[in-house]
Write a protein that binds this DNA or RNA. Structure first.
Length: 855
DNA sequence: CACGTGCATATCTAG
DNA sequence: TATGCACGTG
């Protein structure tokens, strides 16, 4: 604080009073000659310093996007252009929001408590909605429904309408409704043709009644958080104006992923407060009349002014800055509109477009491969990434006979890297579809190679977490029917469908909540004595918990509830493999409750911000889908499964045609650009699809890589068919049948390298047993594509275990053990540090002893 | 009502 | 192949 006198004009932000104020600290930092600007390149600096008017920052992969965003915020603050509470900064994921907060804190020197409007689209929209809930027929304590609740509710509606939910699954309707909401459509705005496709023309009506039900339940789904927010703004211009003048600056991360609803929301907020009367009506309005008073933040207007005086001071500039990369738009299927970013200059006239093209992440070869690949897309804004890094290793392309060999090859390469001292944390395997992961998991388990799966079911989507939350929700609001219904018979209490149906009927007739209905029904003889007693017991328990709530801390209460309800016991008794993990999750849930003031506060935020962040300290290979890899980077990246049908996915091609292909290509681009030093692509000639082996052809994307940056290598795990590795015999040999696409230099070389003596050129491998089946040099089975001897005698696997210690195992034959993935089992064979275990559920498996513990 | 069996089905997946 | 769900039986 070199200039303490300048601190006083800045009242602490309205929401989170912070001693010392971020703005003040930022400005103090700035007084040292804007140190935060040092180290930025010209474009980055331009992106940070262009504060007035709309700005689109096209930030290619690895060009320092987050850095620009956070520095820009620091810059705004230090220039005194706005207070922390006047900057709206939106991201898609909690993770991204957290990261920005952390980086900002580093930059400004302390925890960032004072950025109340930095968050995800949903959390911010939800927060605005809560302050004005009554204007959209909700109460401020409305519940945010998760997908499960949503489905349950829709099922009820389908039943009421007598629609066969087999022909018309609730899931499908949920998808449609979600899609409509993503596009900003209220029930009345859905094109009649579209509404009719579901349930013999009842789709639109169902959507409408679903919305009605939500209001009655005082609930909103994720889509509503934005959609209702838009409605709020449209129907109450005064409220809109309030936010328009509050937010002096808007920043948007990953703009290419925004959907129409988010676009509309941003557009409303980014308009000047006084022109708020002309509201967008159509989903894609163009902003007329904005050239007039665009930039011009009056130099006289300092942030010391309060909102009111600013509003009077004249039209606020549309200081919106969107950062994104059209080449990384991979969520089209989720409603994202690449169009939003492609049309930015049109939507925000006078916009300045800044391209960040200097890549700080990857070596030249990797970057060349990724850039060249992506040029095959047509609809793009166009960027040319460049690097000053070394050339590095070429991108490798390796063919494997089948997916098992692929996994073996990658496993071996990883062990080689490991021997060279490469940390496993710097290695990732990125797959197109999650089912590809299994093969790698199996392989790593046998190798004793630590790995972690990123993505998958999110923490709060897990059944045990939602069950636990449902108990708490019922305690918190007795009228939460969906929660009550969820746990009424969990654990089993003998209260099945019949009972629930009865309660429903009663509740509907009397127009009372289910819980209320239950209370009434137990006083009657309508239920059998057993069910009645059981239900009464449950009601009494809830009433007791509600009383306890007044005197017990909420974390403790949660423990009591889980305990007394028998829920914990239910999982303790469960002997399935994941039961232990579920109990851990419950503990984790209770631990996370500590961060909140009370039960109510916890529940209000839970569905929006719960994230599981697994223990990441351990050194392990990361395994994830390409989608969940976005935003991450690793030194070494393996990209298996580059085959037609799988990648690009046939289904995407069928459903989306050319657009689908382009999105798949962007996915490939994302995959490659995750790599800092090594990118290794694999494809298999044979892959099992739903149980049957199919011969595949290499992905067309391989042909789109620049020959100069690619090296064709042999599979390291290729001992399977004579150690030759190379390319599997397939119809692929018949180049003519694929036209010219396989005549690229890379392929010619690939062809040339193939062992001619193998003479495996006649197709038809799908039907005929491979001539090489069983011919592996170790005399064992090689687990070829025909599935024989899959779990045969000791194979070469044994030799691949790099870290066999030679010490004898601490386990004895017959020991009862537990394994994270396979559950409980008995040791039936010991071989050094490798155990063969007969698992109760998973059958016989060979694992390394460090992966099991005594049960 | 709880449990077992048979059958259809099969991407990616934020909030 | 494997999982989830819808139905039928004990």
């Amino acid at each position: 604080m070199t200039e303490p006198n300048r601190v006083s004009p800045f009242p602490a932000p309205d929401h989170q009073p912070v001693a010392g104020g971020i703005a003040a600290r930022a400005r103090a930092a700035a007084s040292g000659g804007a140190r935060y600007l040092a180290g930025l390149n010209t474009e980055q600096r331009d992106a940070v310093e262009t504060l007035d008017g709309p700005v689109l920052v096209l930030a290619g992969a690895g060009t320092g996007k987050t850095r620009v965003l956070t520095t820009r915020i620091a810059h705004i603050l230090s220039q005194g252009r706005a207070r922390p509470g006047e900057i709206l900064s939106v991201t898609f994921t909690n993770k991204a929001a957290r990261e920005m907060k952390t980086r900002l804190a580093e930059m400004l020197g302390q925890a960032v408590e004072g950025m109340p409007w930095l968050g995800t689209f949903h959390s911010i929209a939800g927060r605005i909605l809560r302050s004005h809930a009554e204007l959209v027929q909700l109460k401020s304590n409305f519940t945010v429904l998760d997908v499960d609740d949503q489905i349950r509710l829709l099922k009820q509606l389908l039943q009421a309408e007598n629609i066969d939910d087999k022909r018309w699954p609730a899931r499908m309707l949920a998808g449609l409704i979600d899609g409509w909401k993503n596009r900003g459509l209220m029930p009345s705005q859905v094109p009649p043709g579209e509404a009719a496709v579901f349930g013999n023309g009842k789709g639109g009506k169902l959507y409408a009644s679903y919305q009605e039900r939500l209001k009655i339940l005082n609930a909103a789904d994720f889509g509503d958080l934005l959609l209702e927010n838009i409605r709020l703004f449209r129907e109450h211009p005064d409220v809109l104006r309030q936010y328009q003048s509050r937010f002096k600056f808007i920043l948007v991360d990953e703009y290419q992923d925004t959907n129409v609803a988010q676009y509309l929301w941003l557009r409303l907020l980014s308009q000047a407060p006084s022109s708020g009367s002309s509201l967008p009506g159509s989903p894609r309005p163009s902003i007329a009349s904005s050239e007039d008073g665009s930039p011009a933040l009056d130099a006289a207007r300092r942030p010391g002014d309060d909102d009111k005086s600013v509003a009077v001071a004249g039209p606020a500039p549309k200081n919106i800055c969107c950062v994104g990369d059209d080449d990384q738009s991979i969520y089209g299927w989720r409603g994202a509109e690449v169009d939003n970013i492609l049309r930015f200059e049109h939507d925000f006239p006078g916009a300045k477009v800044i391209r960040l093209e200097r890549n700080y992440r990857s070596t030249a070869h990797i970057l060349a491969a990724a850039s060249h690949l992506i040029t095959h897309n047509e609809g793009r804004l166009g960027k040319t990434l460049r690097t000053e890094d070394v050339e590095g290793e070429k991108v490798t392309v390796t063919g494997a006979w089948d997916s098992e060999e692929e996994a073996r090859g990658i496993g071996e390469e990883i062990e080689e890297l490991q021997r060279k001292g490469e940390p496993l944390n710097d290695i990732a395997i990125l797959v197109r579809a999650s089912y590809q992961m299994r093969e790698f998991e199996d392989r790593f388990v046998t190798l004793g190679l630590p790995y972690r799966v990123i993505g998958g079911p999110r923490f709060y989507e897990r059944a045990e977490i939602r069950d636990a939350l449902a108990y708490l929700r019922v305690i918190n609001s007795p009228a939460d029917d969906l929660a009550f219904e969820r746990i009424i018979n969990v654990p089993k209490r003998g209260l099945g469908d019949a009972t629930v149906q009865m309660l429903h009927d009663h509740a509907r007739k009397r127009r009372i909540p289910l819980f209320e209905a239950a209370r009434a029904v137990v006083e009657t003889d309508e239920l059998k004595p057993k069910a009645r007693g059981s239900l009464r017991g449950l009601i009494l328990q809830f009433e007791r918990w509600r009383t306890q709530r007044e005197v017990t801390p909420h974390t403790e209460l949660a423990e009591i509830v889980l305990d007394e309800s028998g829920y914990t016991e239910m999982w303790q008794k469960d002997r399935s493999a994941d039961a232990a993990g579920r109990l851990d999750n419950l503990k984790e849930l209770i631990r996370s409750m500590e961060e909140f003031e009370n039960l109510h506060g916890f529940l209000e935020h839970i569905s929006l911000v719960m994230d599981r962040e697994g223990a990441a300290d351990e050194d392990a290979v990361s395994l994830m889908t390409l989608h969940s890899a976005k935003g991450l980077e690793f030194d070494n990246v393996f990209l298996p499964g580059w085959e037609e049908g799988l990648f690009p996915s046939q289904r995407t091609l069928d459903e989306q045609g050319r657009a689908g292909l382009e999105e798949e290509r962007r996915l490939a681009h994302v995959g490659l650009t995750r790599a800092r030093r090594r990118a290794k692509i694999y494809f298999a000639t044979n892959r099992r699809i739903h149980g049957t082996w199919t011969t595949t052809i290499p992905s067309r994307f391989l042909d789109e890589l620049p020959a100069d940056s690619v090296e064709i290598t042999e599979s390291k795990g290729g001992s399977g068919w004579g150690g030759a590795g190379g390319y599997g015999p397939s119809r692929f040999d018949n180049v003519e049948s694929f036209g010219s696409s396989y005549s690229t230099p890379g392929w010619q070389r690939a062809q040339a390298r193939r062992p001619a003596s193998r003479g495996a050129s006649e197709g038809g491998f799908q039907e005929e047993p491979s001539p090489f089946a069983g011919r592996d040099p170790f005399g064992g089975s090689f687990g070829g594509p025909f599935g024989r001897n899959k779990r045969g005698p000791l194979t070469i696997e044994g030799e691949l275990v790099a870290k066999s210690t030679g010490t004898t195992s601490e386990f004895a034959l017959g020991d009862r053990v537990f394994h994270q993935k396979f559950g409980y089992g008995k040791v039936v064979r010991i071989d050094g540090n490798k155990l063969t275990i007969a698992f109760d559920k998973a059958g016989e498996k060979k694992v390394v002893d460090s992966f099991v513990e005594r049960a």
